[in-house]
Design a protein around this nucleic acid. Structure first.
Length: 280
DNA sequence: CATCAACCCTGAGAGC
DNA sequence: TGCTCTCAGGGTTGAT
């Protein structure tokens, strides 16, 4: 499931033309778009999308939370990969000069005038694409970026204690803090030795500081390892081989050897060490 | 404001 | 072999 580190990995590779993307998308000009699964396009209408995106050059690419933000000449293209979304950059034609057929779960494609295309593939059809003048229209309700150095432990503590919620659902709330999903939340809580059901209002300044450090540590490690590849969505990362708690039910905790337990918190499968993460 | 359930989808894995 | 059933998972929406 693409979370902040997976999106960051894709964004930086696509921008710099690294790994499976052998060229950068920056500088390419959109010829036309093909919408293969209409619900993928969140806004505007398909008709308006087609006419507006035509002849726009990609001038930059960045990330906000789990959104990819493509800066175009006069618009912004935003993509949220949700559960199973992925992006592919490939030639429009095969070696023989024939049009390359789409794969089974391809949902939307941008054909570039340079002869390549960017294909959005999404098995589960949860991913969405927007075209907007101002990206803030889409991302405006997101919380702060956890890796932003101007975001301080004092602010974080103030935010946590201002709310009365269970820690895990609060951390996964994108309007509270942007970019954390199920995997990195479990990993950060384990590293910070905090229980996912603990009340945010009860957290001490030290614990808030430790939690922010832990969030930054697991996100940074995820980015360094090019993200995690789990289920059948494989894109080259190897953070999945270094999980502390996530998906390790019945296996020993790396800190103390106690067996990792699975519980359900806020409708999400949750993994904890009952010894390292006592309930407050 | 917090919590909870339903919904959107598909493929994997279990059970038969 | 192949059928049916259950479930995960991010985010949105609506009910309590």
């Amino acid at each position: 499931m693409p979370e902040l580190p997976e999106v960051e990995t894709i964004v930086s590779a696509l921008r710099d033309g690294r790994s499976e993307y052998h060229a950068s998308v920056v500088g390419l000009t959109v010829g036309d778009a093909e919408v293969l699964w209409p619900k993928t396009l969140a806004a505007p209408t398909e008709e308006e999308f087609q006419t507006r995106i035509r002849e726009q050059m990609i001038t930059g690419l960045s990330r906000r939370g789990k959104f990819l933000v493509f800066c175009l000449a006069t618009d912004h293209l935003l993509i949220h990969l949700r559960m199973s979304g992925d992006l592919r950059l490939e030639g429009i034609q095969d070696e023989s000069g024939n049009p390359k057929p789409f794969d089974k779960h391809d949902r939307l494609a941008l054909n570039f005038t340079e002869g390549s295309r960017l294909v959005f593939n999404d098995t589960r059809k949860f991913g969405r694409v927007w075209l907007a003048k101002d990206p803030v229209d889409i991302t405006g309700n997101l919380g702060p970026e956890p890796l932003d150095e101007s975001f301080t432990a004092q602010q974080f503590h103030q935010m946590l204690t201002a709310r009365g919620r269970q820690l895990k659902p609060l951390l996964m709330d994108q309007t509270f803090i942007a970019g954390l999903g199920n995997i990195y939340t479990d990993e950060a809580l384990h590293l910070a030795r905090l229980h996912p059901l603990s009340q945010s209002s009860q957290i001490t300044p030290d614990q808030s500081g430790g939690l922010l450090e832990a969030i930054r540590a697991v996100l940074s490690e995820g980015i360094r390892r090019n993200g995690a590849s789990i289920d059948w969505v494989y894109r080259g990362g190897d953070f999945q081989n270094h999980f502390r708690a996530y998906g390790r039910t019945g296996e020993p905790c790396p800190e103390c050897g106690t067996l990792i337990e699975r519980l359900v918190v806020g409708q999400r499968g949750t993994h904890i060490c009952p010894n390292c993460q006592p309930i407050l």
